[in-house]
Computed example of a mutant assay.
Amino acid sequence: MDTRNRHRNQCEEYARLDRRPYFERKARYEVAADRMRRGGLCDRDIVVDVGAGYTELDVCLRVDHGWRGRYVPVDGWLDGTDLEVWKPEDTFGWFAALEVLEHLKDPGRLVEEFKAKATRGFVITTPNPNVVDVLAMDPTHITPLSRDVLESWGIYTTVHKFYGRHEDGIAGLWTREPVR
Rank of each mutant, 00 (worst) to 15 (best):
83 L>C: 01
73 P>C: 03
41 L>S: 07
119 T>E: 09
118 A>L: 11
60 C>I: 04
45 D>M: 02
147 R>Y: 08
63 V>N: 13
109 R>L: 06
32 A>F: 03
55 T>Q: 14
129 P>F: 12
134 V>D: 10
39 G>V: 04
54 Y>A: 13
72 V>L: 15
139 P>M: 12
43 D>I: 02
109 R>W: 09
111 V>H: 03
42 C>M: 08
119 T>S: 15
118 A>D: 10
128 N>G: 10
130 N>L: 13
144 P>F: 12
123 V>G: 09
123 V>H: 06
128 N>L: 05
43 D>E: 08
135 L>Y: 07
50 V>D: 01
33 A>K: 04
40 G>I: 10
130 N>Y: 11
103 H>I: 05
79 D>H: 05
39 G>W: 03
36 M>S: 03
46 I>Q: 07
146 S>N: 11
119 T>A: 07
44 R>Y: 09
27 A>D: 12
89 E>D: 11
31 V>R: 14
67 W>Q: 06
74 V>H: 01
90 D>F: 10
56 E>W: 05
57 L>G: 00
90 D>R: 14
85 V>Y: 06
63 V>Y: 12
120 R>A: 14
134 V>F: 11
128 N>I: 01
95 F>C: 09
96 A>K: 02
27 A>F: 13
28 R>K: 15
129 P>A: 13
24 E>A: 14
38 R>K: 14
140 T>K: 09
77 W>A: 02
53 G>C: 01
35 R>H: 11
49 D>C: 02
138 D>A: 12
52 A>S: 15
71 Y>V: 09
105 K>F: 06
92 F>G: 03
128 N>Y: 07
118 A>P: 09
135 L>D: 11
88 P>A: 13
44 R>T: 08
35 R>L: 15
34 D>W: 10
98 L>W: 06
36 M>I: 06
43 D>G: 04
99 E>M: 03
96 A>N: 04
129 P>W: 09
132 V>Y: 05
147 R>F: 12
43 D>P: 06
140 T>V: 15
54 Y>C: 08
57 L>M: 01
133 D>N: 15
117 K>E: 11
97 A>T: 04
104 L>I: 06
29 Y>K: 07
104 L>F: 02
142 I>K: 15
66 G>L: 07
121 G>Y: 03
105 K>H: 14
58 D>A: 13
142 I>Y: 00
133 D>I: 09
91 T>Q: 08
102 E>T: 02
131 V>L: 11
36 M>H: 08
111 V>Y: 05
113 E>M: 13
115 K>Q: 15
115 K>L: 11
103 H>P: 06
107 P>C: 01
92 F>M: 03
81 T>W: 01
69 G>W: 04
69 G>I: 08
55 T>Y: 02
138 D>Y: 07
144 P>R: 15
64 D>W: 05
37 R>Y: 08
44 R>V: 03
93 G>E: 11
120 R>E: 11
71 Y>D: 09
118 A>Q: 10
61 L>R: 11
112 E>K: 14
47 V>I: 14
120 R>Y: 06
95 F>R: 00
94 W>H: 05
128 N>C: 07
112 E>A: 13
117 K>M: 10
